[in-house]
Write a protein that binds this DNA or RNA. Structure first.
Lengths: 229, 229
DNA sequence: CGAAAAGTTGATGGCTTTCAAGTCGTGTGG
DNA sequence: CCACACGACTTGAAAGCCATCAACTTTTCG
């Protein structure tokens, strides 16, 4: 596993993102760690990168931070804007799902992840649910903000398919939504959704049986249309 | 305070939303309440509406639920799609920030909101942060999915202004982001952001001093351009 | 002062929406 | 059983909004 910075530098070469002076900051912060004296981070420095091991949580004392994700072709979507009193890096996953960069000089309090072992299970479960929601909403922000109509529809169908995977052994997926609902989820019109589905059907990338059941013969091909590869 | 159903029926007359057979379900659920026997809700029924008092949390046993928000002119944005094992209605606010409707027949376990009084403060604070994030991401989904470029920019400036309110007595707000960052937040290009700002400046709706400080002379007028009125 | 970055403005094109007919599918009633 | 009606979906044509491409201006900073 490369360090945060290297991982970032390698994986997003063409990114619209930060670019410039790299981001040595993170390592420093990592080892300074868990007391309550704030760390100061200069303007436009990376705090952590998407994919980094999620060892810390951060508390903004003052300043401002943006969280963002970048698609492989460089399209970037900011998913959160944070200020004093806000926390970030709260994830139940082992890696951060997005990158964090300061907008202005910022003081951060760094702490270890909480472990839920002595917390009532109900609370713990709720936190997990909330963290999952946040991650999914980040993902959805990228879809809404930065993907084309076809990419949106493809991403949606792949998500449905992966949700159903495990439940249904064969790859047949129930599309239990009207076109209007799909459109309202993806920020499109009903006609655009319909046209996208028709084209996918024409190209053999999805196959419908019984109107609201479909399957994906070639997941590779679909993924190449999702904007995520 | 009207009941959930009435509130919904009144407040969103032109909505693209559910429309049809109304949503008596909610009241029933409300009073059946907090045991562990699941309640069954038929397809396309409203569980609760945006603005309803947030007394319950819901656990999906099986089925599927969508959470959505509707702008005053009827534009709708689905903000979450949920399935078995997912929870919803988790908010720290007193009212739900979006409506919940079943996609298919669904069994729900209903429970009261947890109170945080006997939970460690650190955990409680984290839950609060996560709930706030979820609410903000819902709001941002509406912006990304359903608003025009001008509405996006106006909504963003109003949000900045309201964040800074309290900190700065005069209405002067720091715009500590580049055009590229604003564009990447709003799902636009740098040129479109620039054009929108120029038009707002031309129309006297925002006034810049010192390049990254501005103020809003007429908040009413701005709000009427945000899509939220 | 000069160069580079950030921002603005104009012209053009394309993707998605809008408007308008269609077709399909399902449930009802003759 | 079939005709009909209604809603959901599909398809086409045209318009509009925003992205793209291309200068140009302003600001920043060495």
């Amino acid at each position: 596993m490369p360090t945060a910075i290297l991982a970032h530098a390698e994986s997003r070469p063409g990114g619209t993102s930060t670019g410039k002076g790299a981001s040595l900051q993170q390592i420093n912060i990592s080892h300074e760690s868990t007391d309550s004296t704030p760390v100061t981070v200069r303007e436009h420095e990376l705090v952590f990168a998407e994919g980094d091991a999620a060892h810390q949580r951060y508390d903004i004392v003052d300043g401002a931070v943006m969280l963002f994700r970048v698609l492989p072709d460089g399209r970037r979507q900011l998913v959160e804007l944070l200020g004093p009193g806000d926390m970030f890096g709260l994830t139940c996953a082992s890696e951060y799902d997005c990158s964090a960069e300061t907008l202005v000089a910022t003081r951060l309090r760094v702490s270890h992840r909480l472990d839920c072992s002595q917390v009532p299970a109900a609370i713990c479960r709720m936190c997990g649910q909330l963290q999952k929601k946040v991650a999914e909403l980040h993902e959805h922000s990228v879809v809404l903000g930065r993907k084309s109509a076809m990419e949106k529809v493809v991403s949606f169908l792949l998500r449905l398919a992966s949700m159903d995977t495990g439940r249904r052994a064969n790859g047949h997926v129930r599309l239990a939504m009207t076109r209007q609902e799909m459109a309202d989820y993806l920020g499109l019109t009903i006609e655009t959704v319909s046209r996208s589905l028709s084209e996918l059907r024409r190209r053999g990338l999805i196959v419908f049986e019984k109107a609201d059941w479909f399957h994906i013969p070639d997941a590779e091909a679909m993924e190449s249309l999702s904007g995520d590869r």
